[in-house]
Each structure stands twice: as C-alpha cells, then as structure tokens.
Design a protein around this nucleic acid. Structure first.
Length: 232
DNA sequence: GCGACAG
DNA sequence: ATCTTGTCGC
C-alpha cells in the first residue's frame, strides 16, 4: 500500500465532503430510512451486517453479506479497507429490496480524522447520502472533562475547526465519538445518535448490524439475511 | 524498549 | 477486529 498516495487521495476526496453548519441540508424525519453498518472479520472474509430502520424506531430488518477483503487495516486508512464492502452491501440491499436509504450510520469516524476523511466520508462521497461516523476510540486529542450524565458531550477540534463530539450515551459509561461523514451537521449527527442509543453505549441500529454479522460469521446464515420489503 | 492511533 | 474465564449487575 502506497500510504503517501492514499493520504493524498483522502485529502483530495475530503474536499468533496459537505458538512453543513445546521440541518438545512438534512433534517431528520420520522419516516427516514436508516442503513446502519458493521463488519465482523474471519481471516480475510468480511461478514458485513446492515440494519434497516426508520428514524421513528420502526424496525425493517437486517441483512448480512459475506465479502472477501484483501486491503489490510492501517490506522487512518481504514476507509480503503472497509469502504468497498460497505458500499457493496448498501447497493445489494438497495437493489434486492428496492429500498432507498435517507441516512447511513457506520462504525468509524467521519471528518474527525487527521485528514478529515474517515470511512463515513468515504461512504458519503461514494453515495452522496447523509452519513454519520460512530467510533469507540478517537484519533484526535480533545480538551476538557466530560460530564457523567447521559448526553454530556465535548467538542473535538482539528485545526480550530469543530469536527466531532465526544458523546456520553449512558451515564457513567465510556463515551463514543461522533462525527459527520457527509451532508449532515455535527449537531444533528450527535443528536440523532443520542436518540438512537436509549439503552446502551452503542446505538441500537449499529448493535443490530453487529449482532447480525456476528451471528452469520459464527454460522447462523438464517439469522440475518432478511429485510422486509416495504412501501413508501 | 516506548507508545499505541477508527476496525 | 480477534484471541479468552470469570465475575458483576440488571
């Protein structure tokens, strides 16, 4: 892997990313269809899980696809490993179930990245959809002491620009790191993730995507490859 | 040896 | 991410 080349590619693609200051570009609606994604690995095989729900909370199903991955994991270059399989399953579900997502949520970062180009941005520029990145660890330093209550948050800055939020989704539980990937504001992204995480540290749709992929990887193919077809 | 940085 | 036992709490 030519990391210099890939770093330049990230900077080039980061210029295409649009992060609005508020919800004029995208404002969540109850009927919005949300695709949430996570991957489990077994050697070079990715078990990609995709959960479908409306923002209102209506569950629509989960889907799992097995995809071979050859790109290694390198911190800061995560998008090149995980982006392609995620895009592939999104297109599969879109075609097979005639479903159009209004928003994507993925593991990993959006613009809270040294070159403002995490995997959520990669997905955003490839789909042109509003995208949120949700990570369990940060790549960037941040200042301050986070409050203990659910909903407490601190800004994460990169070169004097607010690019992400440290967000406590449950009281006294280790926070997560939310950043927009494309076409959504930081505050809207954080609000949505908090709303989608009423019970656990990780938001419900990402947990279901994780569980579905995990079950499939362990040998329960029937446990996850189903999405209800819907009418809009 | 030290520090460690998405998954 | 994954490798792994017991243990604590709801």
């Amino acid at each position: 892997m030519d990391l210099n080349y890939l770093a330049n590619l990230q900077k080039q693609w980061a210029a295409k990313v649009i992060i609005p200051p508020d919800d004029v570009v995208y404002a969540p609606q109850p009927d919005d269809v949300i695709f949430s994604l996570d991957i489990q690995y077994v050697d070079n095989t990715a078990f990609v899980g995709l959960d479908v729900q409306r923002y209102s909370g209506e569950l629509m199903g989960t889907y799992v696809e097995q995809i071979s991955v050859d790109v290694p994991y390198v911190p800061q270059f995560f998008c090149f490993r995980e982006g392609p399989p995620l895009l592939k399953i999104i297109k599969s579900v879109q075609q097979h179930f005639n479903l159009k997502p209004d928003l994507l949520i993925t593991d990993g970062h959006g613009i809270a990245h040294p070159r403002r180009f995490g995997v959520a941005c990669w997905l955003g520029v490839h789909t042109l959809l509003p995208t949120i990145g949700c990570a369990k660890k940060t790549l960037l330093d941040y200042q301050g002491v986070l409050g203990k209550k659910r909903g407490s948050c601190l800004p994460v800055y990169l070169e004097n620009e607010m690019v992400g939020k440290v967000l406590r989704t449950q009281e006294n539980i280790k926070p997560i790191f939310v950043s927009p990937g494309h076409q959504i504001s930081l505050s809207t992204a954080a609000d949505m993730i908090l709303n989608l995480a009423p019970r656990y540290r990780i938001c419900e749709p990402l947990r279901r995507a994780d569980q579905a992929a995990r079950a499939y990887a362990k040998g329960s193919p029937q446990a996850g490859n189903k999405v209800c077809s819907i009418s809009r």
